[in-house]
């Protein structure tokens, strides 16, 4: 199997605090890898390192064998790595459909045509594709609504749709189930399964353990910035180190 993403001995320090320490892991094509750990374990920092928001203090991150640590977030997104945010970050000025249209430009090879003001055949084709993306997350009926007026669960789905519209091969989802009710979480699970069936590689940060255990093929466990366990869900669940990290060690 081909390795999509690899971290090699990554350190990230904020002043004296080590958010991530000597972290190494691989994600293979087509995998759905869970990244879990108690609050403050460094999960979101890992996402920020992979997407170029932060630069590692030491070590390197590779995408298909090419070093991407040190690249800016724009360049990394254009390589095919898309993400969502833990605290939803939609654009208040744009409608639901416009969120998809604006993200599609990520794949454009010629950028000068973006200044063209008239509706071309290409633009109609992009609208058709955008509606298909919205259909996939069940939002095509609300295409003309202001995105920030959507209910919470729909906003989470729109963020995933926006990430998908960039045409990525690797998706980083930061707590997509946070704040969702049971029905919405079930919808999300079906969406994750569908994405996996379509061949997307996914790295998932999530606190909903039931969901993580159900959908992930492999799980990485972080605690205080270090990788303490990695393996299939059943193995990770019974790992004494993981149980200690979540429940605390008896003294």
């Amino acid at each position: 199997m081909s390795v999509i993403l690899e971290a090699r001995g990554v350190d990230k320090r904020f002043g004296g605090v080590a958010a991530v320490e000597r972290l190494s892991f691989c994600v293979d094509a087509g995998e759905l890898v869970g990244l879990i750990g108690p609050n403050g374990a460094g999960k979101t920092t890992v996402f920020n390192l992979v997407t170029g928001v932060h630069r590692p203090t030491a070590g390197e991150i590779l995408h298909r064998g090419t070093r991407i640590s040190g690249c800016d977030p724009t360049a990394i997104a254009r390589r095919g790595i898309a993400r969502t945010f833990q605290n939803i970050r939609l654009f208040p000025s744009l409608t639901v459909l416009e969120h998809i249209l604006v993200a599609q430009a990520c794949r454009a090879t010629v950028r000068a045509t973006q200044f063209w003001p008239f509706r071309t055949a290409g633009e109609r084709e992009r609208r058709r594709q955008a509606l298909a993306v919205l259909d996939g997350v069940g939002l095509s009926a609300r295409r003309d609504e202001a995105a920030t007026h959507l209910p919470y669960g729909a906003q989470r789905r729109l963020e995933i749709a926006r990430a998908l519209a960039t045409g990525p091969e690797l998706l980083l989802l930061d707590e997509p189930a946070a704040g969702l009710n049971d029905t919405e979480t079930a919808d999300l699970r079906r969406l994750l399964d569908a994405l996996r069936a379509q061949g997307y590689t996914i790295l998932l940060v999530e606190h909903d353990m039931k969901l993580v255990m159900q959908v992930c093929s492999r799980i990485l466990v972080l605690n205080f910035g270090r990788l303490i366990a990695s393996g299939p869900p059943a193995q990770v669940r019974s790992d004494p180190g993981v149980i200690d990290a979540y429940l605390g060690v008896a003294h």
Partner: peptide, 23 residues
């Protein structure tokens, strides 16, 4: 009304999210 204009709205609203979609 151009696509670049739409991208400008995205930049103004949230530049971190705009970078994450390759703007």
């Amino acid at each position: 009304v151009s696509r670049a204009g739409r991208a400008a709205y995205a930049v103004r609203d949230d530049d971190q999210a705009a970078r994450s979609i390759g703007i």
